[in-house]
């Protein structure tokens, strides 16, 4: 049972492609969790919905790009649903998301023609990306990621996007400045889940099937990508007018790093059954880093070594 580094290297392009796709998903999560500070659990459902819609439309002969576009629209509807449950009926954020997610399980089964999964073969259909061709898959996912970063950078720099950021940062101040925060929340959740569904549509094509379970754990993976990205982002201490775009770029980097770590875990023959446990440990560790960092800084300062205090 020797470990052959060659197998790890040959699997790398696949991890890269999947990492970018999960990174796109994480960018969607970034809108709800980071910009709006709304813990939205819809995403497990909207990711699968995106995959299901994409595959069914491609199977019915529609062009793959159009299918992905439709997936985005369906994701937007999912987000609207959660947003309205929260703002119109006063249901708590987490519960609103869970309700939509649960409902989507049934909806997704219907979309998939009452089956748990549907395959779409790259031999029969023209797909945007597939695991059979890792190089072009990386390029295609990379183009989507770059376009998304550009659009998000622009949008959150507009008056409307700025109002959404203010809503997340300080809802009371936003109301006092005349912002309809309910509308901003619904809009942000719609955009967030639209992005997540886009990632679902790309993932379904990449793996060659859509599965009603494909979104399970998406939130945790997305959070892992965001947090790992932030850890790496902190290492680079440059400030440019494009800071925001760089932060978004590092969410994609986080997705890739997460997948490479997973790849290494598999390569080390970690039992597949333990992968979710492993994921949870990575996320818990990444979440703990800022706390641990701060504690170490404080204890160092107490010790009076004079180091590190000035840093960050």
């Amino acid at each position: 049972m020797s470990l052959n580094i060659g197998t790890l290297i040959s699997a790398f392009p696949g991890y890269l492609a999947q990492g970018i796709i999960w990174g796109i998903m994480a960018l969607g999560l970034y809108i709800s969790f980071r910009v709006l500070e709304f813990s939205d659990l819809t995403v497990d459902g909207s990711f699968a919905a995106g995959g299901a819609v994409t595959v069914m439309l491609i199977l019915s002969g529609k062009p793959a790009l159009l299918a992905v576009f439709a997936a985005v629209l369906v994701g937007i509807l999912c987000g609207l649903c959660t947003g309205l449950l929260h703002t119109k009926f006063g249901i708590a954020p987490i519960l609103s998301g869970i309700l939509t997610q649960i409902a989507l399980y049934s909806v997704n089964l219907h979309i998939l023609g009452n089956k748990a999964n549907q395959a779409v073969s790259v031999d029969k259909y023209s797909l945007l990306l597939s695991l059979r061709h890792p190089g072009p898959a990386i390029a295609a996912a990379g183009i989507f990621a770059a376009a998304l970063i550009a659009v998000m950078y622009w949008f959150f720099g507009t008056e409307l996007g700025s109002a959404i950021r203010a809503t997340g940062s300080n809802p009371n101040m936003s109301k006092a400045q005349g912002i309809n925060i309910d509308r901003m929340k619904v809009l942000a959740l719609a955009l967030s889940n639209g992005t997540v569904a886009l990632a679902g549509g790309l993932m379904a094509q990449y793996q060659g099937f859509a599965d009603v379970q494909m979104g399970r754990g998406a939130i945790v993976i997305g959070l892992a990508a965001i947090i790992i990205g932030e850890v790496f982002r902190r290492l680079i201490k440059i400030t440019t007018p494009f800071d925001y775009a760089i932060s978004l770029f590092f969410v994609i980097v986080g997705g890739i790093v997460y997948y490479v770590i997973m790849g290494i875990a598999l390569w080390l023959r970690l039992p597949t059954n333990d992968l979710k446990l492993f994921t949870a440990l990575i996320v818990a560790f990444a979440l703990a880093i800022p706390q641990l960092h701060e504690r170490r800084r404080l204890s160092r300062r107490k010790a009076g070594s004079g180091k590190g205090g000035a840093g960050q």
Binding site: T158, E159, S162, A163, N170, G178
Partner: peptide, 26 residues
Amino acid sequence: TAADMQILENLALAARRGKRRGLKWH
């Protein structure tokens, strides 16, 4: 004020109180 946002951004938000917030730069 919004703590995570710049002084400039906070003022720009306030300058648009009661106005339509569209897709122009903030």
